[in-house]
Design a protein around this nucleic acid. Structure first.
Lengths: 284, 284
DNA sequence: CTAATAGTGTCTGTTAGACACTATCTA
DNA sequence: TAGATAGTGTCTAACAGACACTATTAG
């Protein structure tokens, strides 16, 4: 490899000459939208900020990416550090937020990951400790009103007396959809920085994919009953659904384990997710 | 706002004390997968690198994000600078690639945007200049073989004598899909860095969304005939499709303009995209 | 004339929504 | 007994794929 550039440099010479400090650079973080289901309700992990900026406000867990660390490694590290989650927790990249003024410290570009885990995988408790610096908020997004060109939804986050409610408006523009969010007056506090954007995006994605992909099985253990699947599904879409139709349709992504479980004395069939089915559609 | 942190600092004091240089930071870029349709073929803009690293290789257009510039502003600037595209060109965020070793200069995290424009909006020509530093490559992704747990596709990029062919394998793992790509021997060169990952992801997304969302109308002008839509659609999915069914289905997202256009002496109806229809499903 | 393209109509099997129904356990 | 929860069966309207068909222009 003796290729030379316009200055006559080899790659080695070029790299020796390269100065990353010529321009001021942003900092990079990863944040996580971590969900689980507890007592039939969809939960989101939030951290109370103990330092500036946004001190005292609730925020998504996350942190800086180490200089020589892959982004996925950073996510895994943060999941373990901040939330005491076992390894092998599912996550995928959601979106990167990088507005120049989104953090007062310096320019911070954050890549948000969407992560899900079954309740049984969580070591951090659901204890109702009001002084806690981390809490599982109940999260729900309900469509309030909808017409041809606008959809109004309400995004609710609640933990003990802490209550945040956002009004989300999706408006059809010429060839894209504009999403605005506004904190409602009933709220006792608000999410730090632009984190509501990430939370809203995550909710949309999970709600949209719950029926057509296998994403919701990341909230369940390896083996489960159909009723358990339906409960998780209904927690996500915040609606009741027809049992007969749901069972008929969901079975296409499952296979029977051949084993049974006792639920209130009744012998109930256990299933397992079969990722062979429909895997192509998951390629979104 | 007189909140103080554990050190007793106000926000102002904290910010004055904050040192972004305490840790070494990555650099951040935006790259673009810019597509158009020309003579019934899907095209991708690639830039030939004139400097290290990856000198002489073809790469996605892009560049560093200025410190105080929003990411979308950077994309718009790059679209205009590098490709002479008019403003108002459609784009959306595709994915952020940030592996620690993806660039030999320093740690570079890049956010890739997927952009599309009708041919008529392009000032940079399709001239067959072999010495050009930018070229519109014909791009095609064809599924070669597919079974329950694996799908093998071939991604082809071609411009004059330059020919790149990748074999893409999607394998079903426990609860996700692993994608690997491998350059095939017939290729005369290869894409710089990890750009093939972005290109492949963009192709998957466009192919998947072509039928169910309005994304392909970004490749067409304001008004178009049904045949033109079908041609663009077939260029994307690299397959012929049933005319009757296609027209029946696509009409649901369109409205007639009431005007006509002469095609080979025949009077052909003109349509326009109606974003009111199906806008909720586009929320992916 | 034939070939190609614009555009329409129809048949059929699959799917999704609505809803009625049985069986079993709890209180 | 009533009231949950587990689980099944059926009807219908909407939809997708296959394909036959007409009309017009180019050669």
């Amino acid at each position: 490899m003796e290729l030379r550039n316009a200055k006559g440099q080899t790659l080695q010479e070029f790299l020796a000459d390269y100065d990353e400090n010529r321009y001021r650079r942003p900092s990079n973080t990863v944040d996580m939208v971590l969900m689980t289901v507890h007592e039939g309700q969809l939960k989101l992990l939030l951290i109370r900020r103990k330092d500036h900026p946004f001190i005292g406000q609730w925020a998504l867990p996350g942190g800086f990416i180490n200089f020589d660390e892959d982004m996925e490694t950073a996510v895994q590290r943060e999941l373990e550090e901040e939330t005491s989650i076992h390894e092998n927790t599912y996550f995928h990249q959601l979106y990167t937020f990088g507005n120049a003024d989104r953090d007062p410290r310096t320019r911070i570009i954050t890549t948000v990951y969407l992560s899900m885990t079954p309740e049984t995988n969580i070591r951090k408790t659901f204890a109702n400790d009001d002084a806690a610096d981390a809490a599982w908020f109940t999260i729900r997004k309900c469509v309030q009103e909808q017409n041809d060109r606008e959809r109004v939804s309400v995004l609710t986050l609640q933990y003990l007396d802490t209550h945040m409610e956002y009004c989300i408006t999706d408006t059809v523009k010429n060839n894209y959809i504009e999403t605005r969010s506004q904190l409602m007056e009933e709220s006792t506090t608000e999410l730090a920085s632009d984190h509501v954007k990430a939370v809203n995006m995550a909710m949309d994605q999970v709600m949209n994919r719950a029926a057509s992909t296998g994403i919701l099985f990341n909230l369940l253990e390896e083996e489960f009953t159909l009723r358990e699947v339906q409960n998780v599904y209904e927690a996500i879409i915040a609606k009741k659904t027809d049992t007969g139709n749901f069972r008929r349709d969901i079975k296409r992504m499952l296979k029977e384990t051949g084993t049974y479980k006792n639920v209130k004395g009744k012998k109930v069939k256990l299933y397992r997710f079969d990722p062979m089915y429909r895997y192509l559609e998951e390629n979104l």
